[in-house]
Design a protein around this nucleic acid. Structure first.
Lengths: 221, 221
DNA sequence: CCATGTGAACAAATTCACAGCA
DNA sequence: TGCTGTGAATTTGTTCACATGG
C-alpha cells in the first residue's frame, strides 16, 4: 500500500503524543484516549496505523512504549541521519543549533555559506564552510539530507548543487518553487505562508463580526 | 463560499510567482503559462481564483501587476500586522530578525523570554523583554499575531498567556498539540515533522532499489 | 479564436458503523 | 464486553472538458 504525506505526518504527531504519555507514566492507551487527550480523531488514528500493520489488542488498546518504539522504527528514527545546512544566515543557524542540541535522529555534519562574512563563524560545534566544500563533504560523509536556508535568489542554485553532489532529500525553507529533480525527495516549507494564512482568517473573522453587528460590509463576499 | 487552507496557501504561492514574473518584466500571463513555469496545475489556479471573483479576461489571460495587487489585498497583505515572538531562543531570534529585515507586512513589536540570560538581549531593533510584560504590550499595541518558539514544556502556558492577553492568532513552532481556544486562529508548524517525512521516503526508496536489484528485503511491505 | 470560468467526473481523505477478536 | 481493524458512506479536493464571452 501507498502511504500519503498526511498520514505520515500524523504518525510523527502520534509519536510525540505517545512519548508524552510514556513520560507521564501511562503504560496503556487506546485510540479514543489519544483522540480525547490530543484533539485527534480515533478512527483516523486506527486507519493511519493500519497502513503499517496491526499494533493493538482488540478490546484492550495499545501498549504505549511498544507502539512508540514501532512508530519510531517505521519512521526510520532509530537510525541516525546526517544532514547539511546550506545558507547559515539567521534561519540556517537556528536550524543547525536546534538540531545540534535537541537530541534528535539528525546529525548536522556541516554548515555552508557563500558570504565571506559568515564563512568561518562558529555555530555550536560547527564552523561555517564555503559552499565550494559542499560536494566533498556530501560525497565523503554520504550525507542524506540537505536543508536550504539561503535567500530566494540563491535557492535554485543551492538545490542544483546539492543534487549534483548526490544528496538524497532536500528540505527547502526558501519561498521559491524549485525546478525539481525527480530522483531527490524535495519538500518546501515557506514560513511566511503560515503567517499569511493566519491574517487572512483574521480579516475574514472581522468581516463576520461586522456583519453580525448589522454594519454594512463591502469587504465580505 | 468557504475557502480551504489549501487554496489559501496556494494563493500565497501564486503571489510569489506573479511577483517573480513582474520583476522579470512580464506584464501579462495565463493560467497555462503560470502552470508551465512554476510546476502548477492550470485548472487549479483558475478554480482557486474563482473563490474570490473574476480576475482575468477570457481569451487573453491575466494582467500580472493587477492580479498580484488583488491577491495581496485579498490576503490582507496591503495592511500591516503587528506580531510578538514568545521564546527568543535560536528559532525565535531567527524569526524576529528575518521578519525585521525582510520587508513583509509584519511588524515585530516585541520579543519575550522567561530566561534571565536572554532578557535584555538586543535582537535586531528589539530588546528582549520579560514574559511578564507580554499582556501589557499586546493590549496597548493591539497585537494581532503571536509566534510561539519556546521549548515544548512551556508551549501550552505561552499559548494560554497569549490568548488571555487578547491575541487574535497564533503560529506555534513547538512540537506539542495545544489545547486550543476556539476563538483564536491557531496554526502549528513542527519543523522536525518535515525532516521525519523526508527520511521515511528515503528508507522507502532504498527498499525499492533492493527489491529491483533482486535482493531479498524483509523491510518492504 | 482562445483562455477564462465552471459544472460534472474523478480521486483522495475523512468519518461512520460494525464485524471480529481478545 | 470493549476496542481494534476495516469496508462502506461521506466529505473534501483535484482534474477534466466545454460553454462563454472578450
Amino acid at each position: 500500500m501507498d502511504v500519503s504525506c498526511l498520514t505520515l505526518n500524523r504518525l510523527s504527531v502520534y509519536l510525540r503524543c505517545l512519548r508524552s504519555l510514556r513520560e507521564r507514566g501511562v503504560e496503556r492507551t487506546s485510540s479514543q484516549e489519544l483522540a480525547r487527550n490530543f484533539g485527534l480523531n480515533a478512527a483516523q488514528i486506527r486507519k493511519d496505523l493500519a497502513c503499517f500493520g496491526e499494533f493493538g489488542i482488540r478490546g484492550v488498546g495499545y501498549d504505549v512504549a511498544q507502539l512508540e518504539a514501532r512508530l519510531r522504527s517505521l519512521l526510520g528514527l532509530d537510525r541516525r541521519h546526517s544532514l547539511v545546512v546550506v545558507g547559515m544566515g539567521n534561519l540556517g543557524r537556528a536550524v543547525a543549533r536546534h538540531l545540534a542540541h535537541s537530541r534528535s535522529a539528525f546529525d548536522v555534519v556541516g554548515g555552508f555559506d557563500s558570504d565571506p562574512e559568515i564563512i568561518g563563524l562558529e555555530v555550536g560545534p560547527l564552523t561555517v564552510r564555503s559552499t565550494g566544500e559542499l560536494p566533498g563533504v556530501i560525497a565523503e560523509q554520504g550525507v542524506e539530507v540537505g536543508v536550504i536556508a539561503v535567500p530566494a535568489e540563491a535557492a535554485q542554485e543551492a538545490y542544483d548543487d546539492l543534487v549534483a553532489a548526490g544528496i538524497r532529500a532536500v528540505l527547502n525553507f526558501s519561498p521559491v518553487r524549485l525546478r525539481r529533480h525527480p530522483e531527490v525527495r524535495t519538500r518546501t516549507v515557506d514560513l511566511r505562508i503560515y503567517l499569511e494564512e493566519l491574517v487572512f482568517f483574521l480579516a475574514a473573522a472581522r468581516d463576520d463580526e461586522e456583519a453580525e453587528s448589522g454594519l454594512h460590509s463591502a469587504a465580505s463576499r
